[in-house]
Every structure is written in C-alpha cells, then in structure tokens.
Design a protein around this nucleic acid. Structure first.
Lengths: 189, 189
DNA sequence: TCATTTACGAAACTGCAGTAGCGTAAATGG
DNA sequence: CCATTTACGCTACTGCAGTTTCGTAAATGA
C-alpha cells in the first residue's frame, strides 16, 4: 500500500499557507498574487496548483485554517445570548475587510466547489444563531408565528446586507437593535 | 465656447453599451471581455477607457441603462403592498445571475466610485420599501419600537443574504414569510 | 492659414490567473 | 537493479484588465 510514487513534501503546504497569509494581510484578496505566494514559499507555481485548484480555493483554505473558534456558552437568557452572539458576528464582519467578504461571495457564486467551502465558513455562526433562536422560541421569549430559520436570516442577513450592499456601518448598537426588533422590547424590568 | 478640440463621436457610447450588453448576456460578468467589447463596437480599447475607467464602471453604467422602472403604486393596504414589493424584489434578484450581483458587490467594495454607482442601483428598491414601512408604522400596522430603517434591512437584507451567503433559493413564499415575521400574523379576517 | 486642443486608432507593454510540456527527483514493487 | 508512479521545478504559453506612447483626425480660435 502506502503510496506508489514520490510522496508530497508535507512542509510545502504550510509554507504556502503562511506566504498566502502574509500576502492577504498586506494587499487583500486582490493584492494576493499566486506568483508571489509561490515565490515567497520557495516553490514553483505548479506545485501550488497541485494543492488548490484556484486562488479562491487557496484563500478559502487559508481562512478556514486561520479561523479561531469563538467559543460561545449560552447563559440561559435568550435575549442576552442573542444580543451577544449577533454583536460578535457584527464585530467580526466589521473587522474583516469588506472586499474580502465580497470577493469570497463572488468566488462562491462562480464556482460551486468554492461555494460549498465558503458556505462552510459562515455556517458555524449561522448555526449558533439558529440554536439560540430555537431555544428562545421554546422558552416563549419570541413569537412563534414564523420559522426560526427566517428569524435567523433577519438577524444575520441585515449585517451582510449593510456590509455588501448599502455600505452602512455595523455598529454594536445596530446589532442590539436587530435583536430588539425580533424579540420585541424588553417587558420585564 | 462650445468645445475646443475634436468632439466625441456620440454614436460610439451606444455601440459600446450594446456590445457590452451582448457580452454580458452570453458570458456574464466574467465572460465580458473589454477587448471583445471594443472589437465588436469597432473601436479601439483606449476609446472605451476614455468613457469608463474600468470594467466595473462599464457594467454598472450598462445595468443602470438597461434597468426598466418598476412602477409601484401603493394600494393603501400596507401588508399587501409590502408583500408585493418584497416579492418583486426577490423575483428580480432571483432572475439575475447570482455571480453578477456578487461581482458588483465585490467591485463596489474595491472602488468607492464604483460603490456609489452600485448603491445607486439598489437604492431605489430600498427607498420604496422604506416608504411603505413608514406608512405601515404610521397606520399602526407594525410595531413602532424599532426604526423603520431596521425593519427595511430585515425585509430586504435576508434576500441578499440568501443569494450571496447561504445560497438558499428566493421563493415567493419566502418573501411572504419575511413580511409576516415583521408585521406579525394577520389579525383581521 | 496656422497653432492649439481634444478624440481616435494602433501597437506595445505590465501584471495577473491558469495551463501545458518536459526533464528530473524520490518513492514503490518486482 | 529496474520499471513504474507520483511530485517537483522550470519554461513557455494564453487570455485578460489596464496603461503608455505615438501618430493622426477633427474641431476651435486667432
């Protein structure tokens, strides 16, 4: 078994990702040049393309690797949890270069394989919100005349909408307002 | 007065836009090649760049020119109006190639000049929804504990969110559900 | 008529993503 | 030892967006 031919140099992938990360930090998605990444890693461009089929796949892999888990422990109070979660997502999006998010969306739209990877990047956050919304609905904190999936879209969608479409800022206050709009004003003081 | 030098050939712009429209129809944003557009219009590439500074600006101008006004006459019933309006926007987005919307967003994020033009493309729809939401709030049909701008984001944002991020379909039923979620279930039968 | 100004066309160029061909290196199985 | 298989490096290539340079055409003002 094992393998038949020459084994892959396992050190190369890490060097390429590190080089790509450096490039991405400096010039963003557009500024990241495949030639420079390969050059910086001391590797031929063809060797890079043996690992990722396109620039988009490289960047998606890179982001997936860079991503640190944001541990979220629900406090039990759905309103507080939602506010914290949506605020965190908003802050994360706001601190990411807009063009990077947009370029990922564009790459996802072009290539279904990339699309799947990009959706996997966002899905974790989406699922976290879904869980809290479901719990809130279970606790009767939120009206149950709509599916939780729709509420999630109405909590998270506006963030991407502002970022990618209207260009308005993603302030912490905006995140709070979104939650209030969905849950209604606080009733108990 | 008049002008000092050789006047622009006014026929060229139209020929370029027509050629670009043809290209856009066939191959989408990516498939549209500046060289081919200029060639098809029987014009040097430099002549095209004298009119639009980039491919993105050309496409934005093209879409702006192609856009037909969707006349919207409010019926007076805010719920029906909102449902119709959001459904129309959803249908329009669903019938547009996703990659085109994504590429426009990416181009907008890269270049602020392009960003302004792209936002102008969407702003009409956004304003129409804002007007109806404001009227609904005025009529007491909708809770007034949040700013109308936020409600608009929660009606329109999820459409772009599904299109650009989650990849879920934009069905007419989804548009209806969004409105129900914001306005609450129908109370009067 | 003539200098000036602006538009157009043509060609060459840069930097980029992605591909193809080929020689060579490193592993395996016999 | 040797054939096979796979990885790697290198070079050259295509197609694309965008720029530069230069020669020429068409208008104006003097």
């Amino acid at each position: 078994m094992a393998q038949r031919g020459r084994p892959r140099d396992t050190a190369i992938e890490g060097r390429l990702l590190a080089a790509a990360a450096e490039e991405l930090r400096h010039g963003g998605y557009d500024g990241l040049s495949i030639d420079r990444v390969a050059d910086r890693a001391g590797v031929a461009k063809t060797t890079l393309y043996r690992r990722w089929a396109s620039k988009a796949e490289l960047v998606v892999a890179l982001i997936g690797a860079m991503r640190e888990e944001v541990p979220f422990e629900p406090s039990g109070d759905p309103r507080a949890d939602l506010t914290r979660l949506v605020s965190t997502i908003a802050a994360g999006l706001a601190s990411t270069p807009t063009s990077l998010v947009a370029d990922l969306a564009a790459a996802a739209a072009r290539d279904p394989r990339v699309g799947e990877s990009v959706r996997a990047l966002w899905s974790e956050r989406h699922r976290a919100v879904t869980a809290v919304v479901a719990k809130a609905q279970q606790a009767g904190v939120v009206l149950d005349h709509v599916a939780p999936a729709v509420l999630v879209d109405q909590l998270v969608g506006p963030l991407y909408y502002r970022l990618l479409v209207t260009g308005e800022p993603l302030t912490p206050d905006y995140a709070r307002t979104l939650v209030v709009s969905v849950l209604g004003p606080e009733e108990s003081l």
